[in-house]
Simulated assay, not measured.
Amino acid sequence: MSKEALKIRLMDTHAGGDVSRIVLGGIDPLPGTTVRDRMHYLRDDADGLRKLLLEEPYGIPEMSVDLIVPAADPEAEVGYIIMEVMGYPIYSGSNTICTATAVLEAGLVPKQEGVQRFILESPAGQVHIEAKVVDGVVEAITCEGLPSYIDTYRSTIHVPTIGDVTYSVAYSGGFYALVEAADLGFSLVREEERALSDCAFKIVEALQAERGFSHYTLGDVGPLPFLHFMGPVDQIADDFYRSRSTTYVHPGVICRSTTGTGTSARLALMHHEGRLAPGDKLETVSLRETGFIGELTGTRQEGTHRVVENTITGKAYVLAHSDIVINLEDPLVEDGSLHHILSSRHRVE
């Protein structure tokens, strides 16, 4: 073993098939007044942590990482910073479901039988959590989705090798292109995963080359990164709908779940089309037959945008508790933007 070996304490979880690695220990306190400030520090000065845990030999790009940090908001129990292969999203539904489950299982928030409520602090701000605990097991997490709205409705773009593609764009924590899967020849089954990824990459690349998008308060949040394939919508009950869905997040990466932010984007689009009203729910079903339930909880007008308030409900499972040993002498460990945040208190003896 290396003379310079440190360890990071992890709890691996998944929600809907998307693996979130929760970092519970081994990282020194980060500078910054808010969780958003600490996220910026990680992004700008310590991006080695994200790369280490999402790249070989320690991880794969399909995973996500959530670093537990102290909350700055006095009403929040803990804070968390989300790291994904594409960078540092300010919010993620599946990561929030996993993080909320992890803080309960780790005892950072005392687990209570029945329904309990608490607040987490994400880089986007407060996130209200409702946890359902049955016989000591976290059976469901309901978390707030970010206020979502439609930026572009049914526009068309020409995509080389594909043709003209009709798309809408929603903001739900990131900008999403939304396309009808059937229009592109997809049934949304697992065997199509590679083809879906290749198709989404071409559409996203074309959109990024043609135009940018700006949030009405946040301004420029970067080029559109995500694409959500939508299947037909079935009405299950008066206020409950179901649709197959899948989300592309990065070249070669289709999320195993339908994603919370993807589900929020669908809620915004269906409300824009007059198909959902407050109190209605939509279950999105993934290529792996997992699902999240989004509920449209309210709407409000923000300038020219009709903003949809929503919640996302899902279940996370604990996969593993582990200590990852970081050998700083390993040539595969790029410690230039990592070693200064690793805690010497977690040195491997």
Rank of each mutant, 00 (worst) to 15 (best):
Y88P: 07
A5Q: 15
Q116D: 10
A46Q: 01
P251Y: 07
A71V: 11
G48A: 05
G125Y: 11
V233E: 02
S92H: 04
A200Y: 00
F186S: 06
L24G: 07
L42Q: 01
R306P: 03
S2Y: 04
I90W: 06
D234C: 08
R256D: 08
R266Y: 00
V23L: 08
L196K: 01
A265E: 00
K132I: 14
R190V: 15
T261S: 14
F226H: 13
D28M: 14
G16V: 01
A237T: 14
P31R: 06
T99P: 02
A131K: 00
M39K: 05
E113L: 11
E55R: 13
S64K: 12
M83W: 03
E283W: 06
D28R: 15
F292C: 06
H340I: 07
H228A: 13
D238T: 14
E289Q: 14
A76Y: 02
G260T: 00
V69C: 13
I293F: 03
I27H: 00
S197R: 07
F226R: 02
V204A: 05
D280K: 03
V134L: 15
T247I: 11
G59E: 05
R50F: 08
M230R: 11
Y88F: 15
V78R: 09
T156Q: 12
L54S: 04
L332I: 09
T297S: 11
M83C: 08
I141E: 00
D323Y: 15
E130M: 10
C143F: 01
Y248K: 08
D44F: 05
Y317N: 10
G336P: 05
G174I: 03
D183K: 11
V85N: 08
T166S: 09
R50Y: 10
G26Q: 01
G59S: 09
G87N: 06
H14L: 11
R21Y: 06
L52D: 00
T101E: 03
D239M: 09
S243Q: 12
V285D: 01
L269F: 09
T142C: 12
L269Q: 04
F201C: 12
F213M: 12
T166Y: 03
L227C: 06
Y153A: 15
G163F: 05
D330Y: 05
G174E: 10
Y167Q: 03
Y91C: 04
L267Y: 03
K7P: 06
A72P: 01
M63C: 10
L332D: 13
E62T: 14
H158W: 12
A131G: 07
I254K: 01
V23H: 01
S122I: 03
V35Q: 00
G219W: 04
S155W: 09
H215T: 09
R38K: 15
F226Y: 15
F226Q: 02
I150A: 01
E334H: 12
Q208F: 02
I157M: 08
I129A: 05
V204N: 00
L10M: 14
V169I: 15
H158A: 10
T258C: 11
S286L: 04
Y216H: 13
H14Y: 08
V249W: 02
